[in-house]
């Protein structure tokens, strides 16, 4: 299987990077120390690795994978490398939801999560309905999504300006996107929900390969095109919204990981497994950069925005050359 052969190096690279992430910190460890600590038998070092560092590494891997799968689903459905949930408004909508609940109800994990989910889903429904004309086509979805994103940005700024200072600060910190979850109790619920979506992704992969062929061919092969597309869009939104609710908006991973993965394999279209592994690697790497490269650690969202900006510029330059 060439799919397995090309996925293995990606998986190995991600594991290697995870080991590096577990080594780094205020109290650096060697590779053998990390491996011993992982068995839980080395006292303080085990506590440090298993309780402090592993939750963050786990979150980076799973959230990165979820964002990348979401991006792969959207880019396949829209047939466009820019058809990513962060560009078409869902992350911005989640942010709007969080600001609104923070202003109205104050900050807590429950309200933030609910606000992010409702904001993201509400935006998705709005974009879908505005783009709907005898079914949804990729390009219209992207254009409508970018328009809605711009309006939501304006709304977010207005809401933050009107909010009380400490409320605005809290919302703004969430809005940068961070993996600084410290304990398993924060990570486990998000991870649990993500694992529940895994069978849905497996289900979606087959009709997704049919929709790639165009609506007519997919329908001729027995796919119920519009309900299936709606279900896959819903799945993509769910993945993005779950991650966003836990971390705040993290740009670039959903956008770039599927395109990087596509270049790393030999098969057709955008591969879901490779995308997930690439996304895990990218988010883990971006989080390491965020923690250790600047003098003071910054939220990972800051790093991904910078990388995403460069990537987007690269895409635009390439498209401009081609045109």
């Amino acid at each position: 299987m060439s799919a397995v052969r090309t996925a293995l190096p990606l998986a190995a690279a991600t594991v290697a990077l995870a080991v590096v992430a577990l080594m780094l910190g205020d109290y650096p460890l060697t590779v053998p120390q990390v491996l011993t600590a992982l068995t839980g038998t080395s006292g303080f070092e085990s506590t440090m690795v298993l309780e402090w560092r592993l939750p963050r590494v786990t979150a980076a891997i799973l959230f990165g994978a979820a964002l990348a799968i979401s991006g792969a689903l959207f880019q396949t459905l829209t047939r466009n490398p820019l058809g990513s949930p962060d560009l078409i408004g869902f992350a911005t909508g989640s942010y709007t939801g969080v600001i609104v609940v923070t202003v109205v109800l104050g900050t807590s994990v429950v309200t933030t999560t609910a606000g992010a989910l409702l904001g993201g889903l509400g935006t998705a429904i709005l974009v879908y309905l505005l783009a709907y004309r005898r079914g949804v086509q990729g390009f219209r979805l992207i254009v409508v999504g970018i328009g809605v994103t711009a309006m939501l940005h304006a709304l977010n700024t207005w809401l933050l300006l009107r909010a009380q200072e400490e409320v605005a600060m809290g919302a703004a910190i969430w809005g940068t996107g961070s993996l600084s979850l410290t304990s398993w109790s924060d990570v486990v619920p998000a991870v649990g929900v993500l694992l529940v979506t895994a069978p849905l992704v497996v289900w979606a992969s087959r009709p997704l390969r049919q929709l790639e062929l165009g609506d007519d061919a997919a329908a001729a092969h027995g796919v119920r095109v519009e309900p299936t597309r709606l279900a896959i869009i819903g799945l993509g939104i769910l993945l993005t919204a779950l991650v966003t609710a836990a971390t705040g908006p993290i740009a670039f991973v959903a956008l770039a990981a599927p395109q990087v993965a596509k270049r790393l394999w030999t098969g057709a279209g955008i591969p879901l497994v490779h995308s997930a592994l690439t996304g895990a690697f990218l988010l883990l790497g971006a989080d390491l950069l965020a923690q250790y490269v600047p003098a003071q650690p910054v939220p990972v969202g800051v790093v991904t925005v910078v990388l995403g900006g460069l990537y987007l510029l690269g895409v635009l330059i390439r498209e401009a050359r081609r045109a």
Binding site: G214, A217, G269
Partner: peptide, 10 residues
């Protein structure tokens, strides 16, 4: 169909 799309690289 009249309009079918071959995925990239298939």
């Amino acid at each position: 169909p009249q309009t079918a799309v071959a995925p990239d690289g298939i």
